[in-house]
Design a protein around this nucleic acid. Structure first.
Lengths: 341, 341
DNA sequence: TTGTAGGCGTTATCAG
DNA sequence: CTGATAACGCCTACAA
């Protein structure tokens, strides 16, 4: 039925192994037989069976993606499409495909990872998140399977190749920016504390506050989910304080949008009544009104470098552990204002 | 090195084939040997090599995704994450994984499809778009490879299983809704005319206009890309008309957001000066100010049904061609106003 | 109920 | 430079 290497061999009057060599463009095959074989392939419409090849060569030319759990909610965040786009680009350049197991809960995800790894479906994995006590990381380390994480690993930083931003510094800079505008009551609205990125951003914020000699108020720190509802809940609490903040560092654009929206409902205007800066600089920040001042973390490149470095590691296991820091940049738009002294 | 079926067989004192049968939970294996074998598997930490299984069984338990080209831009549209989420859910229920080749241009995409199909990497495909003269569709039909399209196929509707909305009717209803509010100058801002969905929505709009006895003005019909910039360009042209529209039917939320944004810049207020309805009802519509009136097309379900029906077809080639229409619903928010007579 | 043997389509190892 | 032959790990008749 389907045309195999043998059919080609027969037609070209060579051994199957020769055909295989032609496919691999093995230099020790004479040009003429190559041509003959290629003609035969053409004529029969031959295409290699990649599954068979994988089995024999122990390489699939594909990399697996591991999404955070609760994929339902999180996927609404434009971060993921963008990072995947970067990964896709990086993979494509090396002619790799993407594979993706379909779990929802943490357990299902873990099970999916095991399937991909033990099932030999992928040559390596990229983790699209980094959270504390992630058993996926433990599993991969134990099995010595190639992987890279996007974000900062929660442990063994020196031993895990990862692609990250300097979130601590970014968050510190952003907070300093607000301080420079005259703000003294600055709140932090972060995402889940189980994500490493949240901690880094929180730390950066706190450091800036401390350095400026401002009081560190617990009630100014709020941690919700990485989505718009989270932002909305946070804001109501913050505004009910006796001394409500005049500026907000929000750890995610989508959340910030929720915040701005809620503020608008309440009748507070950004940036006149309250300033907002956030992270990620996704498309939405431009569309928002006012356009959001946000830290561009170069999501695409995060994904691109992750794929690229993973593949390098897959193809050369000797490749050293790497830590890649993607530069960030504060994009000033119109959600921050100066405070009158 | 890696533990195979043979190792398990040895430990359990059975033949490899028996182990294989235990894995498949073959009923003609006695309970006791099943238990014995399972213990051995456990002890050795055995996991089946899915590649080997695929080769032997000629089934991969995975389905491929085909994205529209120019994946760079299009992926910014929240439509895609959401359909993929649906597909993922549908696939997961049947224990399928997702596979994804990584091309950017139309040609690369096509090549990727051929690889997936001939390479036997996937059991079926879902096309996440539908456009005219799509060679991918031709190729799949010619090779009689299982696939379903999300949207309406550009040809052979009766022979291609697809999952779609009744976009014609939805668009007609939406236009009638505006007409009911008193609008007589209604413009249509659509996406690329090479997408089937655009045509359907345009037709629905035109039909409603005609039925209401309103003039059909060419200058009220504008087609741009499915993104926010498109919406912004469209609006400047429309407003420069001698008789600018008082209401807009916009074929995509993201585009609508661009429109509203632009309008705001110009100083026009929605819905007082101009009404806007759009399609898809993605998360953004709620966050927007004003919240957008939009047609909920149930993107998730579009993806879910696509996966489910594809898998049914994969597992039973006798499965008849199906056309699945996902219901839509107009979600009224605050972007439409009545016109004073 | 279980074992034997051949095959799935390639690649890789050895010869020659 | 090319050809046998043996893997790769699993599945599935066919036998027993």
């Amino acid at each position: 039925m389907t045309v195999t290497i043998k059919d080609v061999a027969k037609l070209a009057n060579v051994a199957p192994s020769t055909v295989s060599r032609v496919i691999a463009d093995n230099p020790r095959i004479s040009e003429e037989t190559k041509i003959r074989v290629r003609k035969a392939m053409e004529k029969l419409g031959y295409h290699p069976n990649l599954i068979a090849r994988s089995l024999a060569s122990k390489s699939t030319q594909s990399i697996g993606l591991v999404m955070p759990s609760s994929a339902d909610k999180v996927f609404q965040n434009p971060f993921f499409p963008e990072v995947i786009r970067g990964i896709s680009k990086g993979a494509h350049e090396k002619e790799y495909s993407l594979y993706w197991s379909t779990g929802e809960t943490t357990d299902e995800i873990y099970e999916g990872v095991v399937q991909m790894v033990q099932g030999r479906r992928v040559d390596g994995l990229v983790l699209l998140y980094s959270r504390f006590d992630d058993e996926v990381v433990n599993y991969l380390q134990k099995n010595n399977f190639p992987f890279v994480v996007i974000g900062k690993p929660y442990k063994d930083i020196e031993q895990i190749t990862h692609v990250d931003n300097d979130n601590f510094r970014a968050s510190k800079e952003v907070t300093e920016y607000l301080i420079g505008l005259g703000h003294e009551r600055i709140a932090f609205v972060g995402g889940s504390l189980s994500l490493v990125v949240t901690i880094d951003r929180l730390l950066g914020y706190e450091t800036a506050i401390k350095n400026a000699g401002l009081p560190n108020r617990d009630e100014y720190i709020s941690n919700e989910e990485f989505l718009k509802e989270g932002g909305q809940e946070a804001i109501t609490e913050l505004l009910s304080l006796s001394e409500p903040p005049t500026a907000l560092v929000v750890a995610d654009d989508l959340m910030a949008l929720g915040v701005v929206n809620k503020l608008d409902e309440i009748g507070k205007v950004v940036p006149d009544d309250i300033s907002v800066v956030s992270f990620n600089n996704v498309l939405l920040t431009e569309i928002s009104r006012p356009p959001l001042t946000s830290v561009d973390i170069n999501i695409f490149r995060l994904g691109y470098e992750a794929a690229k470095n993973l593949i390098e590691k897959v193809e050369d296991p000797q490749e050293p552990v790497k830590r890649i820091i993607i530069p960030h940049q504060l994009i000033k738009r119109q959600s921050c204002g100066e405070i009158e002294a």
